[in-house]
Design a protein around this nucleic acid. Structure first.
Lengths: 144, 144
DNA sequence: ATGACTGCAAACTCTTTGCACAACA
DNA sequence: TGTTGTGCAAAGAGTTTGCAGTCAT
C-alpha cells in the first residue's frame, strides 16, 4: 500500500467519526504501518520526531488510543508490563523471548473460534483473544 | 490440604535451595493458597497484614518473585497493567471482563501441546502459554 | 555468629490528566 | 469562528532498589 493510500484510509475513518486529520495522526499512522511491528509509545515518538519536531508523548498515547478505537492497531502488554502497539489487526499469537525480549509473531491458521466457544460455555462473551507464548527464541536457545 | 501441610511443603522447597523459612513467607504462601484466586500484591498485603503487622509491600513483591521461581505461583498481567499472582499453576486461560474487571478461569481440557508445537515450527521453544480472553462477563453482558 | 531477610524510604518507569495555545474544518 | 487537537508540566499508579537493623540457622 502506498503512503497516500494509507493517508486516505485514515482520513476516511476520521471523517466518518467527525474527527480531524492532523499531521501527527498521519505520521504516527504511517510509522505504525511502515513495518508491521510491535512498537512502544516511546519508539513511535522516536520514529516520528524527525518529521514532526516537538511532538509529545501524551499526543502519541492519545493518538494510539484513538487508533485502537478505529480498529487500526491492537494494544498488548509486553514483557516489562509496558504497552506495545501492533498494526497487525488480524488475529495472531505472540512469542516472547525471556532472554532477549524479542517478540515473534506466530500464526494459528485455525483462528480462535474454539476459544470463543469455550468461553461462551462459561457465560463469557469474548471479543478479543490474546495468546502469548513465553520461552526462548531460536537464537537465545542456541546460546543457552 | 491442611495449613501445616502447606507450611511443610514450602519449608521443604526453601530448604532445598538453602533459603530461610520466615513467618512472612509462610503467611503469604497460606494467603495465596487459601483461595485459588488472582491477587494483586496489594491484596496479598492486606490479607496478611492482620497476622503480620508492619509487613511491607517490597517484601510481598520479593516473596512473590521467590515463589514464582519455586513454581508456586504464576505471574500474569491484568487489565490495568498491574501484576496478578495466581496460585493455580496448572495451565488454564483467563477471561477478563472489560467492564467490571472480573477475572474468570477458563479450562481448556486439551492442553497447550498444539501451541507449543506451532511455536516449535518457527524455532521458538515455549515454556509457558498464556491465553487471555477479553470481553464481557455474564453479569456485565446482561446489563449492557 | 553470620549471612540472609525484612522494613522503611525513596527512586524509577510508564501512563494519564489539566490546562492554555494552536490549528483543522 | 468554533471546536478539536496538541504540547507542556505535573500527577499518578505500580514496581523496584539501597541500606541499616533484625532474625533464622
Amino acid at each position: 500500500m502506498t503512503v497516500s493510500q494509507l493517508d486516505a484510509l485514515l482520513a476516511d475513518k476520521l471523517h466518518e467519526r467527525g474527527q480531524r486529520v492532523t499531521p501527527q495522526r498521519l505520521l504516527i499512522h504511517r510509522a505504525l504501518c511502515a513495518r508491521e511491528q510491535h512498537l512502544t509509545a516511546e519508539q513511535v515518538l522516536k520514529q516520528v520526531s524527525p518529521g514532526l519536531p516537538g511532538i509529545s508523548l501524551p499526543t502519541v498515547y492519545a493518538t494510539l488510543e484513538l487508533f485502537e478505537e478505529l480498529g487500526l492497531v491492537r494494544r498488548l502488554v509486553g514483557g516489562g508490563g509496558a504497552l506495545l502497539f501492533d498494526s497487525r489487526v488480524a488475529p495472531h499469537a505472540h512469542a516472547l523471548c525471556r532472554q532477549c525480549g524479542a517478540i515473534i509473531d506466530v500464526e494459528f491458521p485455525g483462528g480462535w473460534a474454539w476459544a470463543h466457544g469455550r468461553a461462551a460455555q462459561v457465560g463469557f462473551s469474548a471479543d478479543h483473544v490474546e495468546l502469548v507464548l513465553w520461552g526462548s527464541c531460536a537464537a537465545c536457545a542456541g546460546d543457552s
